[in-house]
Design a binder for these strands. Structure first.
Lengths: 233, 233
DNA sequence: TGATTTTCTTGATGCACCTCAAGTTTTTCA
DNA sequence: TGAAAAACTTGAGGTGCATCAAGAAAATCA
């Protein structure tokens, strides 16, 4: 699962990631040396709830899910992580085991950045610390948003919010027609939205029969964004 | 609402807070000078959703709620903040408005630590940056826990989890009898747990009639912690 | 390409929790 | 201390979404 280090390649990947973009080449090189490259086929479990972390992950390509399990064995997806995103930072700063499971949804390439490299970089580079702080803050906001959605929105509103959040449609306004591709299987998205696949299916077809979206496989067309945004509020 | 600065008093408060405990006296003094002391009577709105932050808050005494409102005007409490806790750090690191409202539940004394002081301290003191990172990470974990609870637990399980989390009863095991005091009105706690006051009331009395708790006003006695913990799973 | 597995849909039914409504108790404060 | 307000309880009825079940479509793979 873990390849041997290939600093030059790793370095190139790192220096394109937002976290490390403004860091000097020699420092990136040092960090790159502490990285582990992980080629994980679909279905690989990267860590389990309770495992002890010693770094964070950067997704080079592929996709994975962070989940937790209920006592009854039901699975709930907290987050879907795609190429370019990082995960596991928060737990790295606490002396605690992972609160979630991580499993790849597709064949993926990941970079594991060691805890010691991160701590060292924080010491040397103030702006790196600020970037980590900003990164955690963004994630925190995302979770606040989710808590709000679970508490106050109906399942349909959550679905619409999800569709609008794809491709940053939220900011885009007007009555333009947009097409997007569902980033994962419907069961996966349903779990992310805290609804069953059955309900997800019914709601999609509700929106279709109301003329708010068109669907063909994983491609969804929104003829009128504003109309969809207004629906269900 | 904002008193004039009283560096010496402020300094004393700061140096007792976990965030600043290990910081040298002269640096604490500098931070203290950038603080604003806020005496907020019950019901004071500290900031509204959409306000622009320029620092974070430390609760010296009192209690407040962080909430968001649905389109229909319904209020949901995300977090109850009590003496010794801080809030508003995450939003400070992003150039974004507050995603929530903050309102005092009781007469409170708060300290507002300015953004500039925090950023300066991060520059000067590496371990301060790590403390802020750890602080955000803890909050992130809390929210992950909440998302899990909203998604997978029943209302009763959330209530039991809340009772067990009071006074750190979770770690405490055995069949000891413990008494705790509800930290706020029942409607407030109910909202925090994402249930209606009516359901909250019914569930409390369910637990009472099952002999799992005894209640008298705001005092709740748990005769057998393990028994309560096992119930509803 | 056709067979097998996986994913998705559709229907019938159920239930956990909400809403509305009307007490009752506790707190607040003149 | 007593009256008004706020907080809490209890009941009846409704509903959004889950569950269970079984069939249709799509993806996978020999």
């Amino acid at each position: 699962m873990a390849d041997t280090n290939q600093p030059s390649k790793t370095q190139a990947i790192l220096s394109h990631s937002p976290l490390f973009r403004e860091i000097s080449p020699d420092e990136v090189e040092r960090i790159a040396r502490s990285c582990r490259e992980i080629h994980a086929p679909k279905g690989t479990i990267l860590f389990q709830k309770g495992d002890q972390p010693n770094g964070f992950y950067l997704v080079v390509f592929g996709q994975l899910k962070l989940t937790f399990l209920s006592q009854t064995g039901a699975e709930k997806i907290v987050e879907i992580i795609s190429a370019g995103q990082t995960f596991g930072e928060a737990v790295m700063f606490l002396e605690r085991p992972y609160p979630v499971y991580a499993q790849t949804l597709t064949d993926s390439l990941l970079l594991h950045v060691s805890k010691s490299a991160v701590f060292e970089e924080i010491e040397h580079n103030k702006s790196f610390a600020l970037k980590m702080l900003a990164g955690l803050s963004i994630r925190l906001h995302g979770l606040i948003h989710d808590v709000a959605a679970y508490s106050l929105d109906t399942a349909t509103q959550r679905l619409i919010g999800f569709l609008l959040s794809q491709e940053g449609l939220k900011s885009q306004s007007g009555h333009a027609s947009v097409t997007l591709k569902l980033p994962a299987g419907k069961a996966v998205i349903a779990s992310r939205l805290n609804i069953t696949p059955e309900t997800f299916s019914r709601m999609i077809h509700d929106l279709v029969s109301n003329g708010l979206i068109e669907i063909e496989g994983k491609d969804i067309t929104i003829p009128d964004i504003d109309l969809l945004r207004k629906f269900g509020s």
